Simulated scan of single mutants.
Amino acid sequence: MSINLDFGMLMRSDHISAILSGVRVMLEMTLLTWLIAMVVGVLLATLRMTNSKILQFIVASYVEFHQNVPMLVHIFLWYFGFPALLPIVAQQWINGHDSGFYFACIAVGLVMAAYISEALRGGIRSIPHAQYEASRALGLSYLQTARKVIFPQAFRIALPPMVSHTVLLFKNTSLAMAIGVAELTYVTREIENTTFKTFEIYLLSTMIYLAISLMILATGSWLEARWRLIER
């Protein structure tokens, strides 16, 4: 059996425009989701550094909940469940302001924050406790110690798993298609439905995802090399 690939149908201007639009939405989601994950992840790691058993329990519960519930369920919970708790006026406002995009970013970002915080916690735990004591002896407060001494080292140590989590975050933005966000996977399915070029369009989409994932990994490798040069 011979397979005849035909990419000509995909080269139409409307299809190219749709694919580029899907890539743009995907990259916007990745950036916003990454910012949410990093901010919340650093906050969680900071709280877990404290001696408060209550805060440690809250953070541990957060991590367990977000790591053990499927990400798609989190997206559905935010998109369908959260607005139902709001007044009708608020629901109408949300529905008129691209709620799917933002709720998907929040859901994926909060889930990935759990993974980021655990990567940072691993980096923090590898730092000798004597550095904490020395920092406090020099008069640094808890937050100053975390910001100036602990986290710079923890970020360097945790960089490899954080890069892997960033790639995972990027790939998981494709789940937003389930709530109608017009990112690359959604656009790919729409084009396949109209052209019936299943293999061709999904191959093209796969290559785009692969190329961006490899660029993220290459950026992580470059950062690691730069840090090693700075340390010498």
Results as ranks from 00 to 15, higher is better:
G96D: 11
G81R: 11
F57K: 09
S99A: 11
A104C: 15
I58F: 04
A45F: 00
S99P: 01
G81D: 14
M38E: 09
L77Q: 04
M29H: 07
H97Q: 11
D98E: 06
I54A: 13
R24N: 15
I16A: 07
L27C: 15
A18F: 10
M38I: 14
A18E: 14
F65L: 14
A37L: 07
V63Y: 04
M49Y: 03
S13Y: 02
I54G: 05
W93E: 13
G81L: 14
L32V: 12
W34Y: 10
P83T: 12
V108D: 14
F82T: 06
M112W: 05
A90D: 08
W34M: 11
W93C: 12
G96W: 09
L86S: 02
A60L: 00
A84L: 13
M9C: 01
V39Q: 14
V23Q: 05
F76T: 03
N68P: 02
A90C: 02
W34D: 04
K53P: 01
G22P: 10
L10S: 07
S61N: 01
A60C: 00
F76L: 05
M11W: 03
I36N: 11
W78Y: 13
A45E: 08
Y102K: 08
T33S: 14
L31I: 15
I36F: 06
T50R: 02
L20Y: 11
V42R: 07
H97V: 01
P87H: 01
R48W: 06
M71N: 05
R12E: 15
A114G: 06
I16W: 13
D14C: 10
F103K: 04
L44C: 08
Q56E: 08
G109I: 07
L27G: 15
A60P: 00
I88T: 02
F101I: 00
Y62P: 01
I106G: 02
V42T: 11
A113N: 05
R24Q: 14
M112D: 06
F101S: 07
T30N: 06
M26R: 09
G81K: 15
V108C: 10
A107C: 12
Y102T: 09
Y102H: 10
A18S: 12
T33L: 03
H66K: 06
L85S: 10
L31R: 13
I58K: 04
Q67A: 13
M29G: 11
